[in-house]
Design a protein around this nucleic acid. Structure first.
Lengths: 203, 203
DNA sequence: CTGTTTATGATACGAATGTATCACTAACGG
DNA sequence: CCGTTAGTGATACATTCGTATCATAAACAG
């Protein structure tokens, strides 16, 4: 059975298995053996592709970040197709909505992000850089959209684009955890987002 | 040495020890033996007061929630003393600021809240109810302050008090994690809070 | 065809964990 | 004054974890 095989593909397959089991059993409670079983490979193989568990966790985190970015971009692309070119409001709405745990995939993302954050806060080896860097890029993007809207007269000039951008993303994170904790429904969270979109981009 | 001793006090002492070690080593990685060592008691004693680890975790979470509420109330009381009676803006500012991980104690609270949230998302036995309920109360309180300010003409009547309240608390949570993740400084987060306070309560 | 490298499998090992067990000491009730 | 119980201690046990070790099968080079 040992065949010449694509290393990177194999690594992603295993990382995916980790993310899948970690989403239900918890990131800290997911062991190498479970990952191997979920991926349908032997424990030795997981060790072969990722020498240590820490390496596996880091690779899976990066994979998670990439998947999220891809989903946001895909949502924007989809919006472009089905209508007008991507308006600032549309782009911001896409980002905020994609971060809500509305379906199983997005819920998984939110759960795992929280788990990685919690873990990295006490485990210095697990720097959360990938997710943070991603978030920084998104924040700059939102601020740019706001400024563009202000120039076009679609958003009040009195807004502070940078502060609003940080607020929106912080709120997005908070709403996500609120939904996960069962404190708010997805509909409520969406209503909050729409409320602020109306405030920032008056019709 | 077996003396008649206050049970509840002992339990809080041990729960405090758990919170202390969990804040640095992680909630999942903190074992019964470490808690015992930190509290300066024997492992058997921890077992005696909390039969199982799950019970200990739950008790510590409730203790954490109580300590936070107390701090918020104390901050409001302190504000009352040192000046005017608690204005709506002052109360809201106190709540939002107290939730920022600005000093070690508040940082500990934010770290542990995140850890408990992450754990409870995958461990059904660890319902996060105490923290959620607490947050719900605070949300209602903020909404009430906003409505009072609107009636007094200190806040725009166009605001939706409920949605703004949810937004503020979600933003507060998001800002906290942002600071913890090293994405924002405390000063930046405070600037964001002040920005929204100015928006909600124009001078 | 042969040997060397890549890929895979089975299993062993030491450490750490939560929990259970056995033993003992001090205090209070009668 | 004595026995019953609450409080405390030392230690044992089974399990699980990450990692290491030993062995081997397939693929390509020469």
């Amino acid at each position: 059975m040992p065949r010449r095989v694509d290393h990177e593909e194999r690594r992603q397959q295993i990382a995916d298995a980790l993310l899948r089991t970690a989403a239900t059993r918890g990131l800290h409670a997911t062991g190498m053996r479970e990952v191997a079983a979920e991926a349908g490979v032997s424990l030795r193989l997981v060790q072969y592709y990722f020498g240590t568990k820490e390496e596996l966790l880091l690779a899976a985190m990066q994979h998670l970040a990439v998947r999220f970015s891809d989903r946001v971009l895909a949502r924007i692309e989809r919006m472009k197709e089905t209508g007008s070119a991507a308006s600032p409001r549309g782009v911001v709405a896409a980002i905020l909505t994609e971060a809500l745990p509305a379906d199983e995939e997005r819920r998984t993302f939110t759960v795992l992000s929280t788990a990685y954050l919690a873990l990295s806060l006490t485990d210095p080896a697990l720097a959360i850089k990938p997710l943070v860097r991603n978030s920084g890029i998104v924040s700059d993007l939102v601020a740019a959209q706001l400024r563009a809207a202000q120039l076009a007269g679609d958003a009040p000039a009195s807004l502070d684009a940078d502060l609003e951008s940080i607020s929106l993303l912080a709120m997005s994170v908070g709403l996500g955890t609120s939904v996960l904790a069962g404190q708010s429904s997805v509909a409520q969270a969406q209503a909050v987002i729409d409320y602020h979109l109306r405030r920032l981009f008056p019709a």
